[in-house]
């Protein structure tokens, strides 16, 4: 088996960077959105739910293309982004954004399922004991949905590692800039004699995903242990 080329190693590092960034950025956001869906009632809620869940059913290429035409130079927000000096298309930011949008519904779903099982009387008890809304959010709701949040974050991380369609449209496939593992594998499969390298990257991909699974399993267990001990 061939060893990884420097370019491959770069792809691995980029993949991890994108997945970590996407997970960290979307976790607080996902928690907030899950809270809104579980606890608040307002007109237009189902429309918002639809919009958030749309990437789950849309082909990722479509998501990428929609992002491209809204955030691109000639897109709706293009001039604004250019004015702010932010370039998203064909950059690592674009790769992160593509992962965030595609993985977000999975994250929200997971947190939401956990949050819905929290007995409302815990929150009521906290409020009558003098905790304000914000206080009860951080001392009761967040710890009690900790496992669900963790599960959602590992799903998000795994989805980001595998993101292909939206990334290739929005961020392109530029070696050492936006080329993540799936994109590199795609390149190798289109190159005669690239099978060995593709396989090597596949192996890295398997190992990475497995490590994430183990890590999330372990932390979920320690979270549970901390509660029951």
């Amino acid at each position: 088996m061939t060893a990884l080329s420097p370019q491959d190693i770069h792809a691995v590092i980029l993949s991890v960077k994108v997945a970590v960034a996407a997970t960290l950025i979307s976790a607080p956001l996902g928690f907030a959105v899950a809270y809104v869906f579980v606890y608040l009632r307002f007109p237009g809620k189902s429309i918002l739910e639809g919009v958030i869940n749309l990437p789950l059913v849309l082909p990722p290429v479509v998501v990428g293309y929609l992002l491209l035409i809204t955030l691109g130079r000639r897109g709706v927000f293009g001039p604004l982004l250019e004015h702010l000096g932010i370039q998203i298309v064909f950059t690592l930011k674009g790769a992160v954004l593509a992962s965030v949008v595609v993985g977000f519904p999975l994250l929200v779903r997971s947190i939401r399922i956990g949050m819905e099982t929290i007995d409302h009387d815990y929150i009521r008890a906290a409020r009558t004991l003098g905790a304000g809304w914000f206080d009860s959010l951080f001392t009761v709701i967040l710890p009690l949905s900790g496992r669900a949040l963790l599960a959602g974050m590992s799903l998000m991380f795994a989805r980001s590692l595998g993101e292909f369609g939206a990334t290739i449209v929005l961020a392109g496939n530029i070696p050492s800039v936006t080329q993540t593992i799936p994109l590199a594998i795609y390149d190798y499969t289109n190159t005669p004699g690239g099978d060995a390298s593709a396989l090597a990257l596949c192996l890295v991909s398997v190992l990475l995903s497995f490590a994430v699974l183990m890590l999330s399993e372990m932390s979920a267990r320690s979270l549970k242990k901390g509660r029951d001990a």
């Binding site: 009387d121 008890a125 004991l129 003098g130 304000g132 009690l144 901390g226």
Partner: peptide, 29 residues
């Protein structure tokens, strides 16, 4: 708001916070 009313409630099923020890529950309020 409930936190400013200072009306305590003892619920039918204690509803102690499951992620806290007895002491942390006691001193929450």
């Amino acid at each position: 708001t409930p936190e400013k009313r200072r009306i305590g409630v003892v619920f039918q099923h204690a509803h102690l916070f499951p992620h806290m020890s007895v002491t942390r529950n006691l001193f929450y309020g």
